[in-house]
Design a protein around this nucleic acid. Structure first.
Lengths: 133, 133
DNA sequence: CTATTTGTTATATTTAATATATAACAGATA
DNA sequence: TATCTGTTATATATTAAATATAACAAATAG
């Protein structure tokens, strides 16, 4: 897989997993119905415990990004991704506020800040919806 | 003070403190040279330990947002706030990427995402430096 | 059917971060 | 000098994160 962990990071491993898999879906590297490695194989591949992988998978299943079958394993949600929920909007605003506040204090220009947001968004969305049939 | 803690939050108390004080500076509620409560009085006020307050102050001193004198106490940086450092840019991009990726997966429109970023930024910057009545 | 692979659950342990509790120390200042 | 400031030093409790084993249950391939 395209996952690369930083074991020294303050960000928990299972969080890094969740973020990178979501990023993979956003970039179109993972498409609806695509299979993900089993918890055991991915754990062995990354040199971590299977429960850490399972925790990430569980979170993404709970949020609706993944589907899990018994023997088939884990696949990317094929029945429509979750939309922009109130919870996500709240999380977005809360985290944006902290980032924007520090930007303001550091004297960042409004255009610079918004430009960064736009660039990051486009770089992710750029390769996404190419599979549209 | 304007600080309100959520003791049940997964966000550490000292982090909530740092974020809310930075937000206060961004909003102009705290201006360069303004004094902050002593670690003991703020801790008592919030019903937390003085070391938790001290940890937040230390982080903000280390980053250059606060100045600390022996008896005078803690004041907002009056010798110029830290600018947009490479570290901040890295943090900004890393967190924005996670937020934008989830937004993309959830089918959020580019304009909607950028609009949120702009709105949040403006709401903070709007009042900076105008609090002088 | 049988064996294998899947996610799942259960228990236990280790490590690190968070937060608290006391106490004492050292500089500035009224 | 007395007092308030941040600071440092220990110690402790709690929780989250991660690991380690083991076993279970469902789906599937042979």
């Amino acid at each position: 897989m395209f996952v690369e962990l930083d074991l020294q990071s303050e960000v928990p491993i299972y969080t890094q997993l969740v973020e990178q898999i979501i990023e993979g879906i956003a970039r179109g590297q993972l498409k609806p119905g695509d299979p993900l490695p089993s918890v055991r194989s991915l754990a062995a591949d990354l040199g971590i415990n299977l429960h850490t992988v399972n925790k990430a998978y569980q979170i993404m299943k709970q949020e609706g990004f993944l589907q899990i079958h018994r023997k088939q394993g884990v696949v990317v949600q094929s029945g429509g991704m979750p939309g922009v929920t109130a919870e996500f909007e709240a999380k977005l605003e809360r985290q944006l506020k902290a980032l924007a506040a520090e930007g303001v204090v550091r004297g960042m220009q409004e255009e610079t800040f918004v430009r960064s947001c736009l660039d990051v968004f486009r770089q992710l969305q750029g390769n996404s919806g190419k599979e549209d049939s």
